[in-house]
Design a protein around this nucleic acid. Structure first.
Lengths: 114, 114
DNA sequence: CGAGAAGACAACCGGTCGGTTGTATTCTCC
DNA sequence: GGAGAATACAACCGACCGGTTGTCTTCTCG
């Protein structure tokens, strides 16, 4: 897919919003967990070591963006990944970091430059 | 590249920081502009319709993360892209949006769900 | 050397957002 | 129907961050 050039402001905002979804560690960890298997809110909260409310809030964000699907099962709500593209992006950014000579080097580099 | 699972907190933060770089419209527009050709700070500011200070600040951010290279040329400082992976990520997120039935539909969907 | 151009740096402000706390809603089971 | 479990919703707070304003440094050129 070709990006229009110069990138219009409104399109830039749409793309930025997409990246912003993945710019929070907790959301990345939720996606990573759902990548292996669907799960309920309480289950996610327990495994990720945070509150039910926090997980619920992030799941709302991801659901509004279409990243995640949900389905009611008895008293629970089961969430699962609904957008394979997001997982691909996670993998790609990992590749990008590998290209930067590993996490440690990248981190040290950031510190050195700041 | 395989992602470790479950995703450790510190690695999640590194990845999130990477995505956060691309989560701002102005930074995306700077990258998009540099994609075609290298440019100086004032040049970028004029073309993108913002202040010299603002562009300079964003360029510092991108430089610290290794996304952008710089070189002195007389009285100017010329910036250019130094990380091809970032451009690939921009293209991929565009593909993801196309998968969502286009920008308009995606936007309407977001509004409807909020 | 003095003037002016180009860019970097610092302080500040207002909005956004992640996390917490408290509560409302919805379902199950007895 | 009542109790309790699972989840969503709302209000709040503190931190972070984008943009602006002001200034300092560095370079060029006459």
């Amino acid at each position: 897919m070709a990006m229009p050039s110069p990138l219009p402001e409104n399109l830039a905002e749409l793309i930025a919003a997409r990246f912003r979804l993945l710019s929070e560690p907790m959301r990345l960890r939720i996606i990573d967990r759902l990548r292996r298997d669907e799960a309920g809110v309480g289950e996610l909260a327990a495994e990720l070591g945070t509150s039910q409310q926090n997980v619920s809030k992030h799941l709302q964000t991801l659901y509004s963006a279409g990243v995640v699907e949900r389905r009611r099962e008895g008293n629970s709500v089961i969430y699962s990944l609904g957008d394979a593209g997001m997982v691909e992006m996670c993998d790609q950014v990992c590749g990008g970091m590998e290209r930067h000579l590993g996490d440690l080097t990248s981190t040290l580099e950031t510190i050195r430059r700041s």
